[in-house]
């Protein structure tokens, strides 16, 4: 699910319980355990994300992969984290 707006971060716990992926247009406070979350801090590093259906799993592709004179000097994208997030998304929710 997508959470935006002023109260977005506050709704996080509920969202994490019900959704297999939460996109939060805000920087979160404490994150519930096992919550598949993409927040604005992650996005600042990765840039916009594209999610592809890839065989059995999902593949998450970041925009900021290059390091050129014109790309911003941000940190590096954590490809492994994106990979495991993609794998987690493909699994059924517990209790479903």
């Amino acid at each position: 699910m997508v959470l935006t707006g002023k109260a977005a971060a506050g709704k996080l716990t509920g969202a994490c319980a019900g959704a297999s992926l939460v996109i939060l247009a805000d920087a979160p406070g404490p994150v519930p355990d096992g919550c598949a979350l993409i927040d604005s801090d992650d996005l600042r590093l990765t840039g916009p994300l594209a999610v592809w259906q890839d065989g059995r799993g999902l593949r998450i592709e970041p925009t900021n992969t290059g390091r050129r004179l014109w790309s911003p000097r941000a940190g590096t994208v954590d490809q492994a984290a994106l990979g495991s997030l993609g794998a987690a998304l493909a699994m059924p929710l517990p209790g479903q």
């Binding site: 935006t4 996109i23 939060l24 805000d26 927040d39 994300l49 594209a50």
Partner: peptide, 27 residues
């Protein structure tokens, strides 16, 4: 050429999902 199933904007405020009627936007 294929298009991504899901697109997430750089600020997380907009999400676009490939749906039955074409891409549907979250806002």
């Amino acid at each position: 050429a294929e298009r991504p199933m899901l697109l997430i904007s750089g600020d997380g405020k907009l999400v676009g999902l490939d749906g039955p009627e074409g891409r549907v936007l979250s806002a």
